[in-house]
Design a protein around this nucleic acid. Structure first.
Length: 643
RNA sequence: GCCUCCUUAGCUCAGUCGGUAGAGCAGUUCAUUCGUAAUGAACGGGUCGUCGGUUCGAGUCCGAUGGGAGGCUCCA
C-alpha cells in the first residue's frame, strides 16, 4: 500500500501501482470525466501512469493552468495527426502548448498551407477527436528512437533526439500518429470537443534566423463548444480595441507611403493628447526637481563613437549624412547629447543630483517586419531624462524615479504590469557586460534595496541587463494580450566612463557620477498606442482631444451656444461646436461615436435659464446646471490630475 | 530581414467565367429648425497601390516592387 496526500492535506491509502485516473474515479465519476492530468510530487503526469511510492497528488482539470497545458499539448498532437493524414510526408518540428492554445511547426517541402486550408484541417481534427483514441506513452531507447525517425525521414525530430539522454526518451502515440514527446497527455482525444485553427505563420526552426523557416499553425481547443464561442467573441472585442483601428476612427494619427513606414503623422486629435501628456510630464518633473533641456535631432559621428552606439548598433541607426567630410547621424538616443550638456561646464557635488529632462525625438531603423502601428516605429518622442548623481544619492534618486512611475500608473489606472529587474551574468563580464564587478554588485544591490524597501513586486532576470548597468523594465499588457516594454529605468556607469563625466567633490577631488536613464511615459507613440487600447478610445476628460461637444437643438440657439463656449474656453476647456442643421439625435450619436466625454444639449429651456443640459459619454442624460458651474466642474476634474 | 496572406472611392467593403467599375458611410449643395445614438433629396468622387508580362481584351491570370496584416527573428 502507498500513501497519497491530497492538496487539502488529507491522506488516503491505495494499492501500489494505482493510477491517477483510478484515484479520480474513487473520488467521484464526475471528477473522473473532468480530470486531464495529475501533478504527482510536483511533476505533471499522465493519468494512466502507475504510482508506486507515497506521493502528494493534485488532480488537474480545465480550471488549472497546468491542466489546460496538458489539454493543449495533446491538441497539438491531434493537429499533427490530422496534418499527417492530409499531407503525407510532412515533417514535424515542435508542437508545444502556449498561453492561449498551441501550435505545431511543420515543413511541407514544396507545398504551402494558407488560411483557406485551415477549415479542412480542423474538420480532420474533429473527425479524429471523435474516435476517442487514447494517448499511449512508451519509453524507447535512443537507438530505436533514431531508427524510427530516420525511417520516417524527419530530420527535425532526429536533431531533437540527438540532444537527449538515452533512457529518458519517450514516444506518445494516438491513432496512427507517433511523436517524440515528454508528455504528459490527456487520456484520449475524445476530451477535445471544440477546435479552432487560428492562423498560419512562418517561424525559424529553433528560433534562429540562420535556420530554415518552417510553417507554424496556431490553434486553440476547448472541452466545450460554448467556451470556444466565448473565446472567439473575446477576440472580436479585442480587435475593436486595437489602437490601429481606434487611431484611425478617432483621427488620432495616420501614416503615409510618401513619408515612410513607421513614421507617424499626428493628426490634431493626437497632437492634443500629446500636449496633455507633455504638460503632465513637465508638471511632475518640475515637482521632482528636473530641469528641461532641448537637443538637436542629429549629431556628428564622434558622439556615437564615444557613447559606444557605433559601430555595434549602426544597423538600427539611419545611415549617416556626410557633408564636408563630416558624418552626421540621426540620434537614436538622447543620452549622449545630455552627457555633453553635463560636461558643458565644471560640475560640483553641489550641482548633484542634476536631472536633465527632454521629450527628445529619436530615430531607429527598425526592420520593416518589426514595425507595428504605434507600438514599434522608426521615429519616436521619448519622455527621457538622465539623472546624474553621486553613489550616496543613488538609492534616493532611484526610489524617487520608481515613485514617479507608480504615481503615473495611478493616474492612468494601469494596474496590470510586471517590473522586470534585469541583472548581469558574472561569467560574461568584459563581453556582454562592462568589466567592473564591484560597480555591478553595488548598483544591483542598491536597486534591489529600493524595490524591497518600497515592497514593489518584481521578478529578477539574470543576464538581461544593458551593457552599462542593471535596469528595471516595466512590462505591460495591451488589450489584445500583447506584452511589451512600456518604460525603463536604467542604471549606467558605462557612459559616464566613456564620456569622462566628473564632478568635484567636497574634498576637492574629481569623481565620476552615476547616471540613471528613465522614461516612465515611454514614447508618445507607444504610450498613446497603449492608452488607446487601455481606455478603448474613451479618454478621460483631461486627455480627451475634445472635452465638450456643444450641440444646439436648432441654429436659433447658436448665439447662446457661443456665449457658453466663451465661458468654457475661459476655463481652458477644449470644445467642438456642432452647427450642422441635423436633428439633436444625430448630433448626439456623432459625438458619442467620437467618444467625446461631455455633450451639452442646448435649446429653449437652457437659453431661458442660462444653463446647459449635460450628457455624459456612455452614460446618458446627467441633468442641467448653470453653464458657469459646469465649466468650473470640468476644470476642477482636469486640474486634479496636474496637482 | 524571413514565411504566409491581403491590397478596388476619404472609410468599410461588393465585383460571377477575363469583356473598360458598384454599394453603404463620409463629403458638397439644397430643403428641413427638430429635445438625448443616424431627416430627406441631388451632386461630386476611382488610371482598381506601382511597374512589367500573357491575351483581341486584365480590377480579375503571371512576375517584380511599394504598403498593410498575422507570425518568426530583432528590440542599445
Amino acid at each position: 500500500m502507498i500513501k497519497i496526500t491530497f492538496p487539502d492535506g488529507s491522506v488516503r491509502e491505495f494499492a501500489s501501482g494505482i493510477t491517477s485516473m483510478e484515484i479520480a474515479k474513487s473520488i467521484s465519476e464526475g471528477l473522473a470525466r473532468k480530470v486531464l492530468s495529475a501533478e504527482v510530487n510536483g511533476v505533471v503526469w499522465d493519468l494512466s501512469r502507475p504510482i508506486e511510492t507515497d506521493a502528494t497528488i493534485k488532480l488537474l482539470t480545465w480550471d488549472d493552468a497546468k491542466g489546460k497545458n496538458t489539454f493543449w499539448h495533446s491538441s497539438a498532437h491531434l493537429l499533427a495527426e490530422a496534418l499527417e493524414a492530409l499531407y503525407p510526408g510532412v515533417k514535424f518540428g515542435i508542437g508545444p502548448p502556449i498561453d492561449n492554445g498551441f501550435y505545431y511547426d511543420i515543413d511541407l517541402g514544396d507545398r504551402t498551407i494558407s488560411a483557406e486550408d485551415l477549415p479542412q484541417i480542423e474538420q480532420k481534427m474533429k473527425e479524429l477527436a471523435k474516435q476517442s483514441n487514447p494517448y499511449a506513452r512508451k519509453g524507447v531507447s535512443k537507438k530505436d528512437a533514431l531508427a524510427y525517425f530516420t525511417e520516417k525521414g524527419d530530420e527535425y525530430k532526429l536533431e531533437l533526439i540527438n540532444d537527449l539522454e538515452d533512457g529518458s526518451i519517450t514516444f506518445y502515440s494516438q491513432g496512427n500518429f507517433t511523436d517524440l514527446c515528454r508528455g504528459p497527455h490527456i487520456p484520449d482525444t475524445g476530451f477535445i470537443k471544440a477546435i479552432k485553427l487560428l492562423n498560419v505563420a512562418g517561424a525559424y526552426w529553433r528560433g534562429s534566423e540562420k535556420n530554415k523557416m518552417l510553417t507554424r499553425i496556431y490553434g486553440i481547443t476547448f472541452p466545450k463548444q460554448s467556451e470556444l464561442d466565448e473565446y472567439m467573441n473575446m477576440l472580436e472585442e479585442a480587435k475593436k480595441r486595437d489602437h490601429r483601428k481606434l487611431g484611425k476612427e478617432l483621427e488620432i494619427y495616420t501614416t503615409d507611403d510618401m513619408v515612410g513606414q513607421g513614421l507617424i503623422l499626428w493628426l490634431p486629435n493626437g497632437a492634443a493628447i500629446i500636449e496633455q501628456l507633455e504638460k503632465l510630464a513637465k508638471k511632475k518633473e518640475e515637482q521632482a526637481g528636473y530641469v528641461r533641456v532641448k537637443t538637436p535631432h542629429i549629431a556628428k559621428e564622434n558622439l556615437y563613437l564615444t557613447s559606444g552606439h557605433l559601430p555595434y548598433y549602426a544597423d538600427s541607426m539611419y545611415p549617416p549624412m556626410e557633408l564636408e567630410g563630416v558624418k552626421y547621424y540621426l540620434k537614436s538616443m538622447n543620452c549622449p547629447h545630455h552627457h555633453r550638456i553635463f560636461s558643458a561646464m565644471p560640475r560640483s557635488y553641489r550641482d548633484l543630483p542634476l536631472r536633465l529632462a527632454e521629450y527628445g525625438t529619436c530615430y531607429r531603423y527598425e526592420e520593416s517586419g518589426a514595425l507595428f502601428g504605434l507600438m514599434r516605429v522608426r521615429g519616436m518622442n521619448m519622455n527621457d531624462a538622465h539623472i546624474y548623481c553621486t553613489e550616496e544619492q543613488f538609492v534616493e534618486e532611484f526610489r524617487a524615479v520608481t515613485d514617479m512611475y507608480l504615481n503615473y500608473f495611478k493616474i492612468f489606472g494601469i494596474d496590470k504590469y510586471v517590473m522586470r529587474f534585469s541583472t548581469h551574468a558574472p561569467e560574461k563580464l568584459g563581453q556582454k557586460y562592462l568589466d567592473n564587478p564591484d560597480l555591478w554588485k553595488k548598483t544591483e544591490d542598491m536597486v534591489r534595496k529600493v524595490m524591497d524597501d518600497a515592497a514593489i513586486p518584481y521578478i529578477e532576470v539574470p543576464d538581461e541587463a544593458a551593457f552599462y548597468g542593471p535596469k528595471i523594465d516595466i512590462q505591460i499588457y495591451s488589450a489584445i494580450g500583447r506584452e511589451f516594454t512600456l518604460a525603463t529605468n536604467q542604471v549606467d556607469f558605462g557612459q559616464p566612463l566613456r564620456f569622462g563625466l566628473k564632478y568635484i567633490d567636497k574634498d576637492n577631488t574629481e569623481k565620476m557620477p552615476l547616471v540613471i536613464h528613465r522614461a516612465p511615459l515611454s514614447t508618445h507613440e507607444r504610450f498613446i498606442g497603449f492608452l488607446l487600447e487601455h481606455y478603448a478610445g474613451n479618454f478621460p476628460v483631461w486627455l480627451a482631444p475634445v472635452q465638450v461637444a456643444v450641440l444646439p437643438i436648432s441654429d436659433k440657439f447658436n448665439d447662446y451656444c457661443n456665449e457658453v463656449i466663451k465661458v468654457l474656453k475661459n476655463h481652458e476647456i477644449r470644445t467642438f461646436f456642432d452647427t450642422r442643421s441635423e436633428k439633436i439625435g444625430r448630433k448626439i450619436r456623432d459625438a458619442e461615436v467620437k467618444k467625446i466625454p461631455y455633450m451639452l444639449i442646448i435649446g429653449e429651456n437652457e437659453m431661458a435659464s442660462g444653463s446647459v443640459s449635460v450628457r455624459k459619454h456612455g452614460s446618458g442624460d446627467a441633468g442641467s446646471i448653470p453653464a458657469a458651474d459646469f465649466a468650473k466642474q470640468v476644470q476642477e476634474e482636469v486640474n486634479i490630475i496636474f496637482q
